[in-house]
Design a protein around this nucleic acid. Structure first.
Length: 117
RNA sequence: GAAGUUGUUUAGACGGUCGCUUGUAUUUAUUUAUAAGAGGAAAGUCCGAACACCACAGAGCAGGGUGCUUCAUAACGUGAAGUCGCGGUAACGUGAAGGAAAGUGCAGCAGAAAGUAUACCGCCUUGUUUUUUUUAAGGUAAGGGUGAAACGGUGCGGUAAGAGCGCACCAGUUUUCCGGGUGACCGGGAAAGCUUUGUAAACCCCACCCGGUGCAAGAUCAAAUAGGGGAGCGUAAAAGAAUGAACUGCUCGUUCAGGCUUCCGGGUAGAUCGCAUGAGAUGUCUGGUAACAGGCAUCCUAGAUGAAUGAUCGUCACCUGGCAUAAAAUGUAAAAAAACUGUCAGGAACAGAAUUCGGCUUAUGAGCAGCUUUAACC
RNA sequence: AGGCGCGUAGCUCAGGGGUAGAGCGCUACCUCGACACGGUAGAAGUCGUUGGUUCAAAUCCAAUCGUGCCUA
């Protein structure tokens, strides 16, 4: 049975953790995203999302965050390991449809899987 | 039908699956059930308040704001109804609309002269001269040109030429009388002086208003670290008389301090409250031209904090484009176009609560209604 | 969420009612055997946008659009 839950324990919430990631993590690029990865302490994948003001107004930014969270909720079990991942969204992702973003995330995580898992 | 103008409504609907946030109940260690979950602007942060803390005897100065009248309101720079001015053929729109006869400043260039008035060309008189031209003294502001703006306008009289110098009419100013209006103001009359430039969104004057900071306000709980205060234990050994403090004018000398435990106070990280029952919403009645106010009934309707309200599928509805065509109606010599139906593809604006309300401003899809102007047809 | 600034030549900035300026840069010519330096001349601006006040607005007022900073 797959669990499609996605609670706050699966997410990075504190500013200090974000700063730690940006200091010590390694970066992987894509057309639409930048992923910053580091090993975490808990045996779980934890995800933080960063969307800067450059991307768009509040509606666009919130929509991107929701789409990314939705992707992780559905595909969490396909990714193993205990990683802390910070996803930074680039300007080009604004206004794209959900299908495009999902496929882009899929290729990104294949890349991550090759290098780490 | 077209163009315009004003007001108003709405922000696709329903259902399935998987999720997110909060409340309640239940189990208990995080399950299960159930309820609720963005806007007309949530935006800009341009005003006004509530609320919290700080300051404060009272008054004034400085500084800032507002500025036709009456009303509404908790308050406002907001709203309603009017007045006057301006724009528009009209519907209607729009105005920071007190004071320039309190004072000061400014008005480039051009022009004679930019506010005390003055005199370039011109007009007229007198003197010199045979005459013209020129020139000197004086009187003028009709005419000319400049400028955004030139010191009332028109006509008649008058004069050497002219001039409110005089008169008539008109415009305007001040004072005053009568009538209407709560008032801004409107209508009518009389007198005076003959006429006063513009700018206060320049300083300023007058009237009225304003203490400051903002929920990152503020309150409570409270790890850690540094330092403070109290109490207790220890001051044994080693090292040292170097450091600080007290006693003393100074020196010698004597005493205390450095460590550990615990309590108090303080408040950082963090957590909780503030935090949603309110100048509340909906319906209805009454008063008022209206803004709005009051009565009654019903209802409880988001509360996050790297920040919840999403994704996907189906059905129906709307718009645009392509393709296909049965039947009926209108019309025609015939066709085409439009409409209907089916199917495919695409579209569906502006935009996301962050303490809460009242406004303003800006962005924006669609619909409905009233009114105005006008073409064509009947 | 709340508060405070700044938009002028390609760049950095003056100008705060009378019609647009400085430095660097750019272009042409002179100088030099040639380059640099130097000299002379020139071009380049809807003063962020839209309204209003005024005879006249980069300047005063209002709205708006960008952009930066502060309060953890």
């Amino acid at each position: 049975m797959k669990s499609y839950l996605f609670t706050k324990t699966d997410r990075i919430l504190k500013r200090s953790e974000f700063l730690f990631l940006s200091k010590y993590g390694t970066k992987i690029h894509n057309k639409l995203f930048i992923a910053v990865i580091d090993k975490g302490k808990i045996d779980k994948i934890r995800i933080g999302i960063t969307v800067t003001k450059k991307v768009g107004n509040a509606v666009v930014r919130n929509r991107l965050k929701r789409l990314i969270r939705e992707y992780f909720r559905l595909n969490k079990d396909n990714i193993s390991g205990n990683w802390n991942i910070n996803l930074i969204v680039k300007k080009e992702a604004a206004g794209l449809s959900s299908k495009l973003i999902n496929s882009s995330l899929h290729t990104l995580f294949k890349k991550i899987g090759k290098e780490y898992c």
